[in-house]
Simulated scan of single mutants.
Amino acid sequence: MLQNSELIQLAIVDDHPVVIEGLQRLLGSKDYLNVAGTFTSGNEFLLYLKTNRTDIVLLDISLPDSNGMELCKEIKKRSPGTCVLALSNHSERSIIMQMLQNGASGYLLKNASADELLNCINEALNGQITFSNEIKQIIARPSAHELKEVPQLTRREKEILALISDGMTTPQIAEKLNLSQLTIETHRRNLLQKFEVNNVAALIKVAVQQGLV
């Protein structure tokens, strides 16, 4: 926990100089913040992090030398006390959720207002998970698989779905259930159709998401 007299040490990782310049101008005017370093690559920042305290980092998702999601995980591994705020143009729900899963304290779009940015910085430093307003709306919208109704499966289809998810092949399932391979293939096709997917990998993924396996 920072003492009141200590300046918050903030870093910016973004490969666009104009973004860095704008953030420095905005944040540099705050007497409780010190923009301690700016970096255009992930590796540069990781080297800096070895020997310098960083309370919070504003991290772009797309960098020339690294994936921001993996970089977030590495930052939290090396310095668990550093808050990571994603600052990105990417608004895909899956990317937002992956960043949170990798340890980010929040996510903002680059079109967020100055007030939103400062509010998110303060909330992250206070231990909260924080988002810009547009990201809050994206997270509140259910994903496509959540909107779909769970397919109605027969007892046999549920049984075969469970065996498919266990990695069993059509011949193995046929032998286990004492059914013909043609019957198993028919059930497999019906499952793909009911779940509206094209392959077994997608079938298992959706079935897991809907709590069926």
Results as ranks from 00 to 15, higher is better:
residue 92 E to T: 06
residue 122 N to C: 01
residue 104 A to Q: 09
residue 115 D to C: 04
residue 90 H to I: 14
residue 102 N to P: 02
residue 51 T to K: 07
residue 53 R to C: 03
residue 54 T to Y: 02
residue 76 K to L: 12
residue 82 T to H: 08
residue 88 S to Y: 01
residue 94 S to E: 15
residue 132 S to P: 04
residue 101 Q to W: 04
residue 71 L to Y: 05
residue 63 L to A: 06
residue 79 S to A: 14
residue 39 F to H: 08
residue 102 N to F: 08
residue 100 L to R: 07
residue 60 D to F: 03
residue 56 I to L: 15
residue 100 L to T: 08
residue 45 F to W: 04
residue 138 I to E: 08
residue 44 E to C: 01
residue 69 M to H: 12
residue 54 T to C: 14
residue 59 L to Y: 06
residue 73 K to R: 15
residue 143 S to A: 13
residue 67 N to R: 12
residue 114 A to N: 15
residue 42 G to K: 05
residue 76 K to W: 01
residue 120 C to T: 07
residue 83 C to G: 07
residue 131 F to Y: 15
residue 35 V to Q: 09
residue 50 K to S: 12
residue 90 H to L: 14
residue 48 Y to P: 00
residue 86 A to K: 01
residue 137 Q to G: 09
residue 96 I to S: 08
residue 63 L to Q: 01
residue 76 K to N: 05
residue 109 L to V: 03
residue 90 H to F: 12
residue 35 V to G: 12
residue 115 D to I: 09
residue 73 K to W: 03
residue 88 S to N: 00
residue 103 G to S: 08
residue 68 G to L: 05
residue 30 K to F: 00
residue 94 S to Y: 13
residue 141 R to S: 11
residue 52 N to G: 06
residue 119 N to Y: 06
residue 143 S to M: 11
residue 96 I to K: 11
residue 29 S to A: 14
residue 102 N to S: 10
residue 50 K to R: 14
residue 72 C to Q: 03
residue 130 T to E: 07
residue 68 G to M: 05
residue 97 M to L: 15
residue 93 R to H: 14
residue 75 I to H: 03
residue 55 D to Y: 04
residue 67 N to E: 14
residue 85 L to D: 06
residue 130 T to I: 09
residue 65 D to N: 07
residue 68 G to P: 01
residue 38 T to D: 10
residue 113 S to P: 06
residue 90 H to S: 10
residue 97 M to A: 13
residue 107 Y to I: 14
residue 91 S to I: 11
